[in-house]
Write a protein that binds this DNA or RNA. Sequence first.
DNA 1: CTTTTCAGTGCACGCCCGTACACTGAACAA
DNA 2: TTGTTCAGTGTACGGGCGTGCACTGAAAAG
Lengths: 215, 215
Amino acid sequence: MTGHQTRSSQTRAERKEQTRRALLDGTLQLSADRGLSNVSLREIARSADIVPTAFYRHFASIDQLGLTLVDDGMRALRVMLREARRTPGGANGQASVEILSKHVRANRQLFQFLYRERYGGSVEVRRAIDTELRFIVGELTIDLSRTPGLQNWETEDLEMAADLIVSAMQEAMVAFLSAAKSDARAEDEIVERTRKQMRLILLGIGQWRPKQRQD
Amino acid sequence: MTGHQTRSSQTRAERKEQTRRALLDGTLQLSADRGLSNVSLREIARSADIVPTAFYRHFASIDQLGLTLVDDGMRALRVMLREARRTPGGANGQASVEILSKHVRANRQLFQFLYRERYGGSVEVRRAIDTELRFIVGELTIDLSRTPGLQNWETEDLEMAADLIVSAMQEAMVAFLSAAKSDARAEDEIVERTRKQMRLILLGIGQWRPKQRQD
DNA sequence: CTTTTCAGTGCACGCCCGTACACTGAACAA
DNA sequence: TTGTTCAGTGTACGGGCGTGCACTGAAAAG
């Protein structure tokens, strides 16, 4: 009631933030089974109970809102990766698959948004996602370079392996999200298959001869 | 000029087929950088130089047209796979990467359509693509089961390996299509990386112990 | 108390959309 | 020659869209 600070306001900004979140959540909901590009500004506004033109008080365009969602999704992804990295054998091992499944369940819509827009989104959204994804491959490459036995690998080869791991993980994520929401059996199968794939890749890495050449 | 057959007509059906192809080609063009769902029926009709309502003489809906494009794309994909299969070591080896790159270059838009709609398309289109893709994994599984040294693998494990190979190949395809149309250096890098990934997977397969268990 | 800020309102506009409907005219069958 | 088929036409409609513009009224600032 009595605002006596020289700094920022309170109730006013709170309400704005609330609407902003409603816009983001509503958009996530609406785009879940159609993609962002098939959602209209008016629909989004409706979902947040504001009039269409008020949308512009929060975002300059739907695309800008999309980029914010990409940020949110990537943040969730980084949280997941951090957990995987501090888990024993997490970054390349089998434990990471369970971590993936856990986080996917907790962030369904956000992750779905990411993989859907990665291929189907606008040019800007696609580029934003690809950039972040490349960054992730880079981090995994560094992780691998510190793994015992891989210190003398060439960066190119490390990147190649990291890329393969990320590809498999992404496919697992997509499979997860395609499975019915509470089909535990299907989820278990995906986990099992992906675990094996990780093991297969690790076996391959163990056999790799760093400077090998082919004609 | 003189049509004297009891069977089908000639010039009439030809013109229809011509328009049909114009519709398919135009749609492929229009959806290349926006996705099928962002293309309007009117645009498609315009691209084929017909009036909007005439569209329905050929397809019941844009979705139906999309399914036809999925068929076309899958046909191209099967042609590619057939070539890979009859090439020595093609199905899992490194030669298959070159075959992939060749066919992708020859069918850019069709393949782009496939991977874009696989995640971003309508429910029906997505299902059609996924079904076909699963079929391909199945065929590769059979190929693997005939490979010397893998005869006593369990089907589940073979499928797991086939799935990983297909994932890597798909990622390579996407990378190809994302690379600028005439960036030979980028394409070479992708080929090289994917080749190595195939080699890595093969090494992993070589080390695989069929009945291995983990806690 | 007075003034300023600004999230949200309400209306109006022009645009493109899908599609219903009645039609035309050339290719074809008889 | 005559009648039928049917790919393509042209008009018209109602509806959703993005957005420009003038506004309101409560919260914040002074």
